[in-house]
Each structure stands twice: as structure tokens, then as C-alpha cells.
Design a protein around this nucleic acid. Structure first.
Lengths: 226, 226
DNA sequence: GCAAAAGTGTTCCTTTTACACCCATGC
DNA sequence: GCATGGGTGTAAAAGGAACACTTTTGC
């Protein structure tokens, strides 16, 4: 019996955030067939001697110039037929980045790399729509028992940015006062002296995450129902 | 550049339950090298034209005779070096079964197949210890936002079996009365007329799961903090 | 009649929700 | 001075935790 030839790939769902625009996803435009010219998740084949994480980070940087510092395995998609030409099993990861940290460029397999608002996505190649939906569900679930935000917001941010982030991810209104009360109770934020004023209205204090507490919650989880 | 040769395998962490003995894990004794004679999770290479789920179910039945009806993808383990001979990436699944439904037998790659109490596990081959620990964590997390039990208990069971199951999985005492109150509120159980007496003490009613509600919670999740 | 397990209810406390008024700024 | 967003507190409601007594059986 000969060895099955199954190719192993990784794909990355990278979320970015902007308080004004909401949540975006990083996509590339494919340079080669299949789906030439179509939009897809960044990703590619795993090399024989590299770890899966390394493969995602490498492909992501090659194709888009983005380096994520937070990356987590999402799910493995392996249905025969998901790639029209060969059997390819893809281990999908998802990551969070501060959009403003990067200038996108496209290279290797990508003709273009762009952020798309997660409500206005183009048609996607392969089963990447499924992957993306799985990632969105995961992000929505995650937010309830692990902090997100540090990876998506600037180092210093007004509280309203964090509040809007949660409203965006959960896609529902969240009472401003109760949210603040609950979040501050976690004792994960440091309030700075600085204030910032964006447009009209009273300026708000800037906050930053307490890295240590943040990592602790990330590791041990918490309960954050809202 | 030649195609990397990465082999793709699946491994299964199958949990079984017995109110008297607690939670067990199904392991096989390896017939061939590497780790010949050692204990390992059931599993094996994926065929070129079968889905990952199919591969797990096939390997599991071949090696142990167990057919799971509930199986969920756990995590993909892909570190180079996890298999001493080749690069093998393993997609791990975990499943829940009623132990009493099966008579184990060992075949193909397995010399023996046995249930081990999850507190008294032998040394495991490859990185299977990591896989198992990941599965245990997942099971403990799962119990809080999805029902488990239907897959682990007999069709009809006294309430105390369910209670013990939760105590076993969570590895802590849970107040009997509060647990019952909360669980019955979910309206997921049907109380039967039948009563059963196991040893001394007042006989208890038998319950069964309301399949429809169960599937709904399984799909949509709930919040069950205890 | 004693030990063992099942059935049931109440109180207290914590957490969550709903909600309103004042404050600092830009224009 | 008015529109806009930021900052803060309180009361009512719901949910969770703690806890004790009665009932039915086996021996």
C-alpha cells in the first residue's frame, strides 16, 4: 500500500480593529490558479521541518507583511474536495493585530493584500468562508472567558475604544456604565493621567492593560458575561 | 522544490463513564515500533480520499471495536519531532461513549485495548500525554457551556449518576440540591415513573434526556456555571 | 431501628440589570 | 449655550450558595 499523498497547509484568519471602522479581516488576492484573482485567507503549504505556527507566521509575513504576536489554532479543515486539485488539509489559525502597526504589501502568492470589514466580505476561495465563520464564532466565544483587546487596541486607549470593541465583536449594545464597572473590577487596566479628546465631548482618560494580569487571565481564563 | 512529505494522522481520545468507577480513557497497546508494547491513543494515518472524521472512526473501530456516536475535533498536533521517525501531523479528536455498550477487542496495529481510569494512566507513546491533557481540559471546559451526559450515561439513569458525572469531571464536590435545581430548570430531562434502587437507601426516579432540547443546547450552548 | 441515599424549600448574599444626572470640551 | 461624549451611583431583580429536615428503602 503506497503512502497517501496529502498536502498540509496552514491558513490564517487575522482580525484587526479600528474604533471608527470596526473589525476587519486580512485577505489576499490570489496570484495563481485555482481561484486566480479571487480573495482568500493568507496561507500556504507547511515545510517539512517547520512547526505549524512557524508556517503560518512565515506565510503571513511573506504574503502580506503582517507579523502577528497573538496567534491561536482554530480548527483543521480536511474534507476531501476542499481543494479542487489535490487533497489538502489545512490547519487554520486566527490572530489579532493592531491594524495601525502595519503597512500591507503583497508578495509571493498574493497579488494584493487588503483589510475587509467583517460585514462586507467578498466571495472567498476554497472553503475559506467556512473557516472565517468558524473564526468569528470563536472570537465571539473567546471574549467571554479570556481578555481580548490588548492585541487589538493601541497601547494607550480611551475606555470608549474598549467598549466599542466589545459591542463590535458581540454585535449588540452593551451598557456603558455596567461594562466599565465590570471591566474595572477585573483590575486589569491602569488608568493614566493623560486625557484625550476626540472631537466634541469631555476628554476621557487613557488606559493601558496591566500586562501581567492580562497574561494571567489569558492563561487561566475568567468569566466575563455581558 | 520538491513537495514536503508530511504524513497526516488522526488520534482519538475516547472517554467512557461508569458511576462507580468514574471516568476512563480508551488506550491501545502498540503492536509495532516505535513504542512497541507501549500504550497509546487509538489512531492512524488518514487515507487519501476519506474525511478526517471517517479516518478516526475507522481507526477506532479497527483497533478497539468501539463506535462513537459523538466525536469532536480537539486540536492538531504538529511539532516536528513528535514522531521519532517521520514528520507526522496528528489531528486529535475526542469522543464520549457509554462504556457498557462495547466489548473491547484489539486488532490491526493494537495488541490490546483497555480502559484506564483517567487518574491512573500509564506512560504514553509519542506526545499522547499532551493530547490527553488537552482533551481533559476541553472536557472540563465544555461541561460549562454544553450538556454532556447523554453520550456517557445509559438511556435511563438515576439523577445521582448525572450528579456524580459532574463531580467526576470537575473533580470537586457539587451541592446535590442546587445541582438538581439548576439542571431541572434547563428542562432537558424527563422524569420517568420507574424507580431504581441500588443498594441501601431510598430508590430514585429514573430520568432520560429530552433529545431535542439536548441537541439544541449542544448546538447553541448554554451557561452552566457550577 | 439504624444506616444510607433520595426528595424538597428557605434564607442570605452576590451579581446583574436598568436607569439619570452632572461634567468637560468644541464649535 | 448647546451638542457631544465622559464620569459616576443607586435601587430593584435575579441568580447562586449555603444549608436541614423528611422520606423510603435494605439489613
Amino acid at each position: 500500500m503506497s503512502l497517501p499523498t496529502i498536502r498540509l497547509a496552514v491558513d490564517a484568519v487575522v482580525f484587526g480593529y479600528d474604533p471608527k471602522e470596526g473589525i476587519s479581516v486580512l485577505l489576499i488576492q490570489r496570484k495563481y490558479d485555482p481561484f486566480k484573482g479571487g480573495w482568500a485567507l493568507p496561507g500556504g503549504l507547511v515545510n517539512e521541518d517547520e512547526s505549524l505556527e512557524h508556517a503560518v507566521e512565515r506565510e503571513l509575513e511573506e504574503e502580506t507583511g503582517v507579523k502577528v504576536d497573538y496567534l491561536e489554532q482554530l480548527y483543521t479543515f480536511g474534507n476531501p474536495g476542499r481543494d479542487p486539485r489535490n487533497r489538502v488539509v489545512a490547519v487554520a489559525y486566527y490572530g489579532l493585530v493592531k491594524k495601525s502597526d502595519f503597512i500591507l504589501y503583497a508578495a509571493t502568492d498574493a497579488d494584493d493584500a487588503k483589510w475587509f470589514h467583517w460585514d462586507e466580505l467578498p466571495e472567498l476561495a476554497f472553503d475559506h468562508k467556512d473557516i472565517l465563520e468558524t473564526a468569528i464564532k470563536r472570537l465571539r466565544g473567546k471574549i467571554r472567558y479570556e481578555p481580548i483587546g490588548f492585541e487589538l487596541l493601541d497601547d494607550k486607549f480611551p475606555f470608549s475604544d474598549l467598549h466599542k470593541l466589545y459591542e463590535n465583536v458581540l454585535d449588540k449594545e452593551v451598557d456603558r456604565r455596567n461594562f466599565k464597572k465590570k471591566f474595572l473590577q477585573l483590575d486589569i487596566l491602569t488608568e493614566l493621567e493623560e486625557k484625550v479628546s476626540e472631537g466634541p465631548g469631555r476628554p476621557g482618560s487613557l488606559f493601558k492593560f496591566n500586562q501581567e494580569k492580562y497574561d494571567k487571565f489569558k492563561k487561566e481564563g475568567f468569566n466575563f458575561e455581558i
